[in-house]
Write a protein that binds this DNA or RNA. Structure first.
Length: 214
DNA sequence: AATAGCCCCAACCGCTTCTGG
DNA sequence: TCCAGAAGCGGTTGGGGCTAT
C-alpha cells in the first residue's frame, strides 16, 4: 500500500538541529563530499534521516550560501523568473547564486506575494486584478502583467515559454551548463557566479520543446 | 509586565523523477 | 523494458521571536 519510509523513523531525531549535529554533518561532508544521503547519517554518526541531512546541508550549512536580505535586483529577478517558470523554486534558485529554493520559496510567500498584491497584481498569474490602478509606473511585475494581458485573449491558458521570452528581452535564461558568454556577463552581472554546479538541482525539469535560450 | 496575535523560516512530508541493475 | 531504491522537489507546518495591546 503506502510507500516504505525513507528511513527508520523510530531511531531518528526530528526538529531543530543542534550545533553538534551541524558540526558532525559539516565535518563529514568536508571529509567525504556529498554522496549517498541515505547512508550518510550512519556514516557521520547522526541520528537523522538522509533527507533531513540533505536539506540541512543544502539550505543552511553549505559554505557558498548567501545569507541576509534579498536585494532589489534579486527581488526583480525572482518575480520575472516566477512569471516564466511558476513555482519551480529550484529552477529559480539556480539563477540566484547563493540562494536556496527553500529560501526563495519562503521569501516569495512572505514578502513578494504581498508586495504584488499591494500593487494589484495577482501573484499566481502575474496579471493585474481587474480593479488594479493602471496609472502607476512600469515596475517588473507590471511589465510582466502587461505582457500577460496582451496574450490573454481567450482563457487562463499560459502563453508558451518561447513567446514569453520573446517579450522579455532583458531576462537571460542561459540555462545550459557552461560558463556564460562575455556579452552575457556584461548584460547580466548576476551570471558571474553561475556554474554548472548551480544546475545540478535544475537538471530534472524538462524544458518546452521550442524553448529558445538565445 | 503579561499575553495574544502575527510573521518568518527551518524542517518535515509525500509525491515525482531519475538511475542503475 | 521493467522495477526498486535513491534523490530531488514543492507544499505545508511548527515554533520561536517580535510587536501591539
Amino acid at each position: 500500500m503506502g510507500r516504505s519510509p525513507c528511513c527508520e523513523k523510530a531511531h531518528t531525531n526530528k526538529g531543530a538541529w543542534t550545533k553538534e549535529e551541524d558540526d558532525r554533518l559539516v565535518a563529514y561532508i568536508r571529509a567525504h563530499g556529498e554522496g549517498c544521503w541515505r547512508s550518510l547519517p550512519e556514516a557521520a554518526g547522526l541520528l537523522r534521516c538522509g533527507k533531513s541531512c540533505r536539506l540541512r546541508w543544502i539550505n543552511y550549512l553549505r559554505p557558498d550560501l548567501k545569507r541576509g536580505n534579498f536585494s532589489g535586483e534579486e527581488d526583480g529577478l525572482i518575480i520575472k523568473l516566477h512569471s516564466l517558470l511558476g513555482n519551480k523554486w529550484s529552477l529559480i534558485a539556480a539563477r540566484l547564486p547563493g540562494r536556496t529554493d527553500n529560501e526563495i520559496k519562503n521569501y516569495w510567500n512572505t514578502h513578494i506575494k504581498r508586495k504584488l498584491l499591494n500593487r494589484g497584481v495577482d501573484p499566481v498569474t502575474h496579471r493585474p486584478f481587474t480593479n488594479a490602478n493602471p496609472s502607476s509606473s512600469s515596475s517588473n511585475s507590471e511589465l510582466i502583467s502587461s505582457f500577460h494581458g496582451k496574450n490573454s485573449s481567450s482563457s487562463d491558458e499560459e502563453p508558451s515559454s518561447t513567446c514569453r521570452l520573446a517579450k522579455l528581452p532583458d531576462l537571460n535564461l542561459e540555462l545550459s551548463i557552461g560558463p556564460p558568454l562575455p556579452q552575457q556577463l556584461e548584460a547580466n552581472p548576476m551570471l558571474v557566479n553561475s556554474s554548472a554546479e548551480e544546475f545540478k538541482h535544475a537538471r530534472r525539469i524538462p524544458w518546452p520543446q521550442n524553448f529558445e535560450l538565445n
